[in-house]
Design a protein around this nucleic acid. Structure first.
Length: 597
RNA sequence: GGGGAAGUGGCGCAAUUGGUUAGCGCACAAGCCUGUCGAGCUUGGGGUUGCGGGUUCAAGUCCCGUCUUCCUCGCCA
């Protein structure tokens, strides 16, 4: 409820039958007008609701004149008296629909020009127009709802973490460039010409320093910047819930995140999220789902048939087996009911993903039919079918390729065939993917570190690492995955200087480079660093899923376009040559204006 | 950086094979109307078809270039 204030006695969503007879003052925007001559309605709207104003023969004649002069989206202050609407004319769709306000006077506080688009939910407006006039888009209920929910959810996060003894710390926006990883946004230093700040890609190092500083538990709802190309679910600046904890292992981090997620779901959906979340080691996720972010609403799983595929006399399988590739199958229960067109579509998408193809067969009453079936007539074929536990009515896909390509194709086949079968569950499924590999393989066979260099390896795998092995080394890194979307990731950090240097060495960062880039962190580790671990959740992405938004932009107040531009402010823009002079910067690219002149 | 789609009054769309003065709905303006709530009815104003060039008797339509937006691959340790 809006309390009385200098400008208004109630909000536009406050008034009910019990207010009948009261003299009230409302402020808001002129929404919809319906003028019937002798009776004239105007809706006035604010964040809280819509209230119907009316003038008729019971109203002052001056009020009728003032009402007639109103335009859409004028900001008005209205004085009047609450009365019941006449029987049969109540509006059940509106919280204030039982009453109306008979107007004594209307004062226009700020008139509106003709609008670029109507402020109505049913009007479809192109997104760049909505972004250019974001403040008008904001008056409509979808964005109102998203921003209100976002605020509520942020509040739920803060409450949960503060309850768990976390301290909110603001880390710097002007910081040091660390060239590996995403491209930095750079800010020139006027005081030290030739030197540059970077905007943070994440508060990673600062939060670790907070642990060395003895804060024990840190969090921040932090803005992060990355100068990379965009996607529907990616923005150049985005908001991350960042946290770090001392003297903990994985389970402590999971518990802290689970508690806060529970609070967020409570606040947004008013449901009790089941905890603990499922845990799935990375290797199992790849084996069962061919993905490190599997959508567990999809019941299909993958079967490794490498041990039975060799006897099928299928040259494609044999070639792949010879080069140590993957031969794996997906059994789609009931999939035999799919049309040839639907199956061809799955096969086509698998091919487009880069794999050689997806050989398939249906299991009919008479046995297998379809392209793969001719390799299944033998005893070996029966062994294959037994291996994947095929029964009548099933559809079987097989993928054979290099591990990397097979993985992508299996993921596609799993997703596409489940969606064709309509077998993806409704309920949100959240899962921890644990023990990520420390290194990922490049296309040329070499390895690069899969995470930032402060990620702790699994102790058992250390001897292998010291032997120079890269493949199969596990790290104590974990991701949180919701319905096949990666929400966030974290890890147990290295707190030992010697181990840290070992890792720098293993991932190919020479000591002098490590020293130059991370000197401040390494120095801190000299003075007693506690064992620590942390996590970060991409809040824009989480909220776009939770609020059922089409794009990440729909849950951000002032988002950027796909080219990282802001249609509202027209940023980025050309600056004065004087500004550049002060910064000691000489521009070599011709600007638009210079090209024109 | 690569690929795809789109761009026509403020907004959503239409315009046949290249052929009349580029239409329609909403919004906007004026008027009528005593119960509407996405009110209704009448009348009216509003367009260099993103921009530049070309082909043609004739271009919204075809060609070339360019800009903007969206999606996507690369990229995002």
């Amino acid at each position: 409820m809006i309390r009385s204030a200098a400008w208004r006695s109630h909000s536009c969503g406050d008034l009910r039958a019990e207010n009948v007879g009261q003299e009230v003052t409302l402020c808001g925007w002129v929404d919809n007008r319906r003028n019937h001559g002798a009776v004239h309605f105007v809706d006035v709207r604010d964040r809280y609701g819509i209230t119907q104003l009316v003038v008729d023969d019971e109203a002052a004649t001056s009020a009728a004149e003032q009402m007639s002069g109103l335009h859409q989206e004028d900001v008005v202050q209205v004085k009047g008296t609450v009365r019941m609407r006449i029987e049969g004319q109540r509006n059940a769709d509106r919280i204030t629909g039982d009453i109306e306000v008979v107007v004594d006077s209307v004062k226009v506080l700020s008139a509106s020009a003709t609008l670029p688009f109507e402020i109505a939910d049913h009007i479809d407006v192109p997104e760049d127009t909505r972004l250019k006039y974001r403040y008008l888009d904001m008056r409509r209920s979808p964005l109102q709802r998203a921003l209100q929910l976002r605020s509520k959810a942020n509040n739920a996060i803060r409450n949960s973490l503060c309850d768990q003894e976390f301290i909110e710390v603001e880390t710097p926006m002007l910081t040091k460039s660390t060239p590996e990883g995403a491209r930095d946004y750079l800010v020139p230093s006027r005081m030290r010409p030739g030197c540059w700040f970077a905007l943070p890609q994440s508060p990673q190092i600062f939060k670790q320093l907070c642990m060395v500083g003895g804060l024990d538990r840190y969090f921040q709802i932090a803005r992060c910047m990355r100068d990379e190309d965009l996607r529907a679910d990616r923005q150049p600046e985005f908001t991350q819930l960042d946290l770090e904890m001392s003297f903990v292992d994985e389970e402590d981090v999971y518990a802290a995140v689970e508690a806060l997620m529970q609070n967020v779901y409570q606040a947004v959906h008013d449901v009790e999220l089941a905890i603990p979340f499922e845990r799935l080691p990375y290797n199992d996720a790849i084996a069962l789902y061919a993905s490190d972010k599997p959508d567990l609403r999809n019941p299909l799983t993958i079967v490794d048939v490498v041990d039975v595929a060799g006897d099928l006399d299928f040259v494609v399988f044999n070639n792949v087996l010879e080069s140590n590739g993957w031969v794996r199958a997906i059994r789609v229960p009931g999939g035999a009911s799919l049309s040839r067109k639907q199956i061809d579509n799955v096969e086509r998408l698998a091919k487009e993903s880069g794999a050689g193809g997806a050989a398939w067969c249906k299991i009919g009453a008479e046995g297998p039919t379809g392209p793969l079936s001719r390799f299944l007539k033998s005893d070996a074929g029966q062994a294959f079918l037994n291996r994947i536990e095929a029964v009548e009515g099933d559809l079987i896909f097989t993928i054979a390729d290099t591990p990397r390509r097979a993985q992508v194709a299996l993921d596609v086949v799993r997703r596409e065939s489940a969606s064709a079968m309509n077998m993806v569950g409704e309920d949100d499924r959240i899962v921890w993917i644990t023990e990520f590999p420390l290194f990922e393989q490049n296309d040329d066979g070499s390895f690069h570190p899969a995470h930032h260099p402060f990620t702790c390896p699994v102790a058992e795998d250390l001897p292998l690492l010291r032997n120079g092995q890269k493949e199969g080394i596990r790290s104590r890194a974990y991701d949180l995955v919701l319905n096949g979307v990666e929400l966030g990731s974290g890890s147990i950090r290295i707190h030992d200087k010697d181990l840290q240097n070992e890792i720098f060495d293993a991932i190919g960062i020479p000591p002098e480079v490590a020293q130059e880039r991370f000197e401040f962190l390494l120095r801190a580790f000299n003075y007693g660093a506690p064992p620590h671990a942390g996590f970060a959740i991409g809040l824009d992405r989480l909220y776009s899923i939770m609020f059922d938004a089409e794009s990440i932009r729909d849950v951000i107040a002032f988002p950027k376009t796909a080219t990282s531009a802001c249609p509202l402010t027209a940023a980025p823009s050309v600056v004065d040559i004087q500004q550049l002079d002060e910064l000691g910067i000489k521009q070599v690219i011709e600007t638009e204006q210079e090209v024109k002149s």
